[in-house]
Design a protein around this nucleic acid. Structure first.
Lengths: 225, 225
DNA sequence: CCTTGCAATTGATCGTTGGTCAATATATAT
DNA sequence: ATATATATTGACCAACGATCAATTGCAAGG
């Protein structure tokens, strides 16, 4: 039995979260059990419920630490005057983070839609990341265009996020694809910003029509026989 | 005890997958149990393992059906000569699908990174969706630019995917944001395509510097005391 | 130093899960 | 009718999250 005064509340919180992080990095969410955490820190499983509401509460707090770490790394990227260079640096840092902490990064977005909503401060931590992209975009927008800048920041973030989740998903995109496409994302976005489309613009002068979509692949038998 | 000849293999497969779909749509992945499915179709839980390897195999096959349904809906979108209009129609159809089948759509992307890899035909079904976007982009690209077109299709898809997952995530983006930003995504991408950035372009003529990021929010206490 | 009272910790316990498998029931072939 | 093959069952196992009465350890009061 662990002595009562071995650790303060904060120390025990940190112990639990660190142990959870270790388990998650090694075995992923499936391997995260109360018994496993308790064993790692020399406490009984029941003790966890003394400090956290339930297992999901532990996950939320691990995610919070991950978000803090990610924010600190991205905020450290020097924001020069060149928006494109700053954006590329932010993306590179982000991708570096996903490869250095793949399991913890993935855990950030493994919430099911029927899960209980996260606390407000959690969403605040997520939203804080947008502000970094907004700041990087500042040179491209004059005053009075804060809404546009905000939208473009969220668009860039969503694009990068989509690329990474598709790569993490499996065989649809490789991480090399992500690196190449994220460069393309920045270039295309900045180019598009400089030449906004006025409504009524004709689409294209090319007379070529789309090939018929290659949807003739034989549908695989979805169920084993 | 259900009679042995009440249903053929295919019928039983369909029964199981339909029951699983029903449970998933009502209660999400957390409510999907072998006992629940078995009860819904009048079979014992053990019978499920006669037709599917395990519960994840059932999820994979439900996802396969979802991908087929999504593909059929998107393929039905008329591909006119106007790339922007076609893209907007595809996006509208996709967003409509996410609101009509939120749980099933979310299930497509709830795979954890340590999960067993899906079978090849599953990834093929995912990749097939890209071809629709590629076809819509055809008017914007001449011949000999298939790689660029392919990249741009994946970029657009990733952008939309990122927007939707962020909206499904919780309070970071609303679905109204997604509708507005997906329009912006298409407009900016097409505008960027028409005016590609040559390496060496100067970023911007605006002398404004980025505001210092608003990172002064007090960090909330992550752990209850 | 002893006692009292509070708080931290425990681990047995509950209900539930995914998955297995010998036993049983059923359909088909001879 | 008998035999063979197969579909189905449900008891069973290990493991899970969570609960809570019982136990232990600590610090303060006398």
């Amino acid at each position: 039995m662990a002595r009562r005064s071995d650790h303060s509340h904060e120390e025990l919180n940190a112990l639990i979260l660190d142990a959870a992080r270790g388990v998650l990095e090694k075995e992923g969410l499936a391997g995260l059990t109360t018994r496993r955490i308790g064993q790692a820190i020399g406490y009984s499983p029941g003790t966890l419920y003394n400090r956290f509401k339930d297992l999901d509460d532990i996950v939320v707090n691990v995610n919070a630490a991950t978000l803090d770490e990610l924010y600190a790394e991205l905020a450290a990227v020097a924001a020069g005057g060149d928006a494109a260079a700053t954006l590329r640096a932010l993306v590179a840092r982000y991708l570096d983070f996903t490869t250095r902490r793949p399991k913890l990064w993935a855990l950030l977005f493994q919430t099911s839609p029927d899960a209980a909503p996260r606390p407000d401060w959690y969403y605040a931590k997520m939203g804080r990341l947008f502000s970094l992209v907004e700041a990087a975009l500042a040179p491209l927008f004059g005053t009075g265009r804060e809404q546009e800048r905000r939208d473009m920041a969220r668009l860039l973030w969503a694009g990068l996020h989509g690329l990474c989740t598709l790569a993490a998903e499996g065989a649809v995109l490789t991480w090399d694809d992500v690196r190449r496409l994220s460069d393309l994302l920045i270039a295309t976005t900045i180019a598009g910003l400089r030449h906004p489309v006025r409504s009524g613009d004709s689409p294209s002068r090319s007379p070529r029509r789309a090939d018929t979509p290659s949807a003739t692949n034989a549908s695989p038998t979805a169920i084993q026989e």
